Amino acid sequence: MLGPISRPSKFAPRGLPLQRSAAAQFDEVVAIEVTRLEKRLPQVIARVEFAIEDVPNLEIDATEIPLTHATGGTSHEPYRIVVFRRPIELRAERSGSSLSWLVRSALVLELADVLALSPEQIDPDFDPEGD
């Protein structure tokens, strides 16, 4: 039996998805967190490019799965921080953490690492144990 939400209507026109994909939802969470950091540190975030990939490209003998990866950061090129969607989603599900908190933590820790700052300098509200 089809329910009202599964049928085309003026609220869900034919050809449009009734629900956003997990990837689209994740992209929105990352965009919100980057915007939040950009408001706090506009001069720092202006030197950083952000990207999202589904999974990292790992070596066969890798023992850890990263949540983010940073490259670049020379005088001629900006830092590039890649956020890996599936590892973050899976860790959020397993730990019961909110997705936005985990994305925020991963971004703050990666930015602190590449800029040689403390996480609290990047985000004064940073709480590694918080949720």
Rank of each mutant, 00 (worst) to 15 (best):
L2Y: 10
G3C: 06
P4N: 00
P4Q: 03
P8Y: 04
S9Y: 10
R14C: 12
R14H: 09
R14I: 06
G15R: 06
L16G: 04
P17I: 01
P17K: 12
R20T: 00
S21H: 10
A22S: 07
A22I: 04
A23Q: 07
A23Y: 02
A24M: 00
A24N: 01
Q25S: 03
F26Q: 01
F26T: 02
D27I: 00
E28G: 08
V29T: 07
V29H: 02
V30G: 01
V30D: 01
A31L: 01
A31I: 01
I32D: 15
E33I: 04
E33M: 13
V34M: 08
V34K: 04
V34G: 02
E38T: 09
P42L: 00
P42N: 00
V44W: 03
I45R: 12
R47I: 08
V48R: 04
V48Y: 03
E49T: 12
E49P: 02
E49L: 13
F50I: 11
A51N: 03
E53M: 00
V55T: 04
P56E: 07
P56D: 04
N57Q: 03
N57S: 05
E59Y: 13
E59V: 00
E64G: 09
P66T: 06
L67Q: 07
L67T: 01
A70R: 11
T71M: 07
T71A: 13
G72E: 01
G72P: 11
G73V: 12
T74N: 07
T74F: 08
T74P: 12
T74R: 06
S75M: 13
S75Q: 10
E77R: 12
P78Q: 08
V82I: 14
R85K: 10
P87I: 05
I88F: 02
E89M: 15
E89T: 14
E89Y: 09
E89Q: 15
L90S: 10
R91C: 14
A92T: 11
S95M: 04
S95H: 06
S95D: 02
G96L: 05
G96Y: 03
G96W: 05
S97G: 11
S98D: 09
L99R: 03
W101D: 12
W101E: 11
W101Y: 15
L102S: 04
L102G: 02
V103D: 03
V103P: 03
R104T: 06
S105F: 04
L109V: 06
E110M: 13
E110G: 13
L111F: 14
L111G: 11
L111E: 14
A112W: 13
A112Q: 13
D113K: 13
D113R: 15
V114D: 00
L115A: 07
L115Y: 09
L115C: 09
A116V: 15
S118N: 15
S118T: 13
Q121V: 05
Q121D: 07
I122K: 07
I122S: 03
I122F: 10
D125S: 15
D125A: 15
D127S: 11
E129H: 11
G130Q: 07
D131K: 12
D131T: 11
